[in-house]
Design a protein around this nucleic acid. Structure first.
Lengths: 192, 192
DNA sequence: CGATTCTTTGAAAACAGTCAATCTGTGTGG
DNA sequence: CCACACAGATTGACTGTTTTCAAAGAATCG
């Protein structure tokens, strides 16, 4: 399982064999079954998780009891609640597996030390965080400027891999529309 | 003008007099008149800007020609397009002043060197970026789960200072609703 | 004061949400 | 292997919300 992570790291950043061994030494491997939780509302997020295999989602439950999906993540993506991770406060979000998944996990303490010891790792993670911000800002833009149909088409175009393995009602939740509306958008689209 | 920035830095992070002098030495002071642009679509963002006084906005123009405001920023906030700044590619956004404003500006080269030379500055900026991510993720959540009225009330509660100095049609743009809808939400709210 | 910018209002049309029912495909247990 | 349960997707009818377009009323600035 660690080989996936090793391959990922080597392709993304310059890293020596010794550094990789340091990383491996503190890595935790974990399997999640479909529907199993990685993090639940009220927990404190204390880990960085790399997805070696599978598919997870983060969602929040609103006051009226509805689930709202904030993001999906598949192989080679990271998953955690940065807000709780950084602040040490209980999280407002839930993370669970949409498929049987395999994760490489680091505790916050270990991962902080690794980044201090391995400048390239730190640099890489910083770039990752910076890009995550860009992605979310662009997504916010789609929410204030796109129609539901445009958001849906944009999603398919941007994440065809996720589109093909996640149920539509979850995509509706991610896009912020009801599943019925998404269904109707799809049928209109098919009839043109 | 630099005193505002000095006060800000000293209150937010441990910093020595020499370090502060290093920072001051490469800082650029700039004034913007209302409606003047700091960055326009197609430019490359090469600066970090701290707002010592005034109010700016970033917005994007959609294909149908509408302006969509991504964020406002007032005193003691930073303003730049991180995406273009990091990638070196032309920006998709515009930044202009909503009031006469005063800025402390650093070139990317200078600011990168400062952060390398001053660990506390680097740490502080990292925390700032991390919090910016949390803020935008929470805002995204409000967009997929709140009604227009809830978004409006949440905005007033979160940013009363901005609410009081920005025209309503811009708040409508920021919230992703038409100005007429915002106006009607307000009048309904007043009649209860 | 006149011009511009900003805000509000009205009416019609487009859009999205809700509730209830039905349809489809998948997988599990008998 | 079949029947049944279950999760997911769709459809219809209705309701409620939001946009659009047009107009008019405030407020602000030079």
């Amino acid at each position: 399982m660690f080989e996936v992570f090793e391959k990922y790291l080597r392709s993304k950043t310059e890293i020596t064999d010794e550094e990789l061994e340091m990383i491996r030494a503190v890595s935790i491997q974990r399997k999640l079954r479909k529907r199993q939780y990685l993090l639940q509302e009220g927990d404190v997020s204390r880990h960085d998780c790399f997805i070696a295999k599978g598919c997870l989602r983060t969602y929040r439950v609103s006051e009226d009891g509805n689930e709202h999906i904030l993001r999906f993540a598949v192989e080679n993506w990271w998953m955690s609640d940065k807000e709780s991770y950084n602040s040490g406060k209980p999280t407002k979000i839930n993370i669970d597996a949409l498929e049987d998944s395999e994760l490489i996990i680091f505790t916050k303490e270990n991962f902080t030390e690794l980044q201090a010891a391995i400048p390239n790792l730190r640099l890489f993670m910083e770039q990752l965080h910076a890009r995550a911000f860009d992605v979310i800002q662009n997504r916010l833009y789609t929410h204030i400027s796109y129609t539901a149909e445009e958001k849906y088409n944009n999603f398919i175009k941007s994440y065809p891999d996720i589109f093909n393995r996640v149920p539509l009602h979850m995509i509706a939740s991610y896009l912020g529309v009801s599943r019925e509306t998404l269904s109707r958008i799809r049928s209109q689209y098919a009839h043109r």
